[in-house]
């Protein structure tokens, strides 16, 4: 991504949201913008209208053990313009107990399963999602395994099944 690309997106966002508090950063030519959670839909819509036609990925990070972090969760949107190949990362932060963020499904329908996966793993609720439930884990599962306070080996759920012996089968 070239230097001008960043300023393009900057202009787009400044025009759409003159008052929003956006922080831009860059690492190895990858541009990122941190936006407040309240402005996320406006930002994503503005970017989509300006040419970011694909939501490449949507994920979250639990910052519980991250050195120097002040927020608990970070939701990350990786956007892509499929014609020019430009990429932009949009990040926003969430804190307990208010783990709610508006859904991006109306903007890119590809966000559907990605959001459900994030809920499955982190417990972040996407409001306005058409079919919101767990994606990967069983409905009866109670924890959110990708959170940092959940142990790698689980809390014994994997042992909690009936046993079938030879005599019974």
């Amino acid at each position: 991504m070239t230097e001008s690309a960043e300023s393009d997106w900057k202009q787009v966002l400044e025009k759409a949201l003159p008052s929003a508090n956006l922080r831009w950063s860059e690492f190895r030519n990858q541009h990122r913008v941190d936006v407040p959670a309240s402005a996320i839909v406006a930002v994503l819509t503005a970017l989509r209208d300006a040419g970011m036609d694909q939501l490449c990925d949507l994920t979250a990070v639990d910052l519980l053990e991250y050195p120097g972090a002040t927020d608990r969760f970070e939701v990350v949107y990786l956007l892509l313009n499929t014609t020019s190949g430009q990429r932009l990362t949009v990040r926003t932060h969430l804190n307990e107990p208010d783990l709610k963020i508006p859904s991006a499904v109306p903007i890119w329908f590809g966000a559907d399963w990605l959001e459900r996966e994030v809920y499955d793993m982190y417990g972040i609720v996407f409001e306005g999602h058409p079919n919101f439930k767990r994606l990967l884990l069983p409905e009866a599962f109670e924890s959110f395994p990708m959170r940092k306070d959940y142990p790698v080996k689980g809390r014994g759920e994997r042992h909690n099944f009936p046993i079938i012996t030879r005599a019974e089968s």
Binding site: F27, R28, Q30, R32, C56, D57, T59, V61, V76, L78, R87, T89
Partner: peptide, 17 residues
């Protein structure tokens, strides 16, 4: 830092964030 790197895997864009 955070970094996203992607390659064209046989199935499509396989990236790691």
């Amino acid at each position: 830092e955070s970094y996203y790197g992607a390659t064209e895997s046989p199935n499509g864009e396989l990236g790691y964030y």
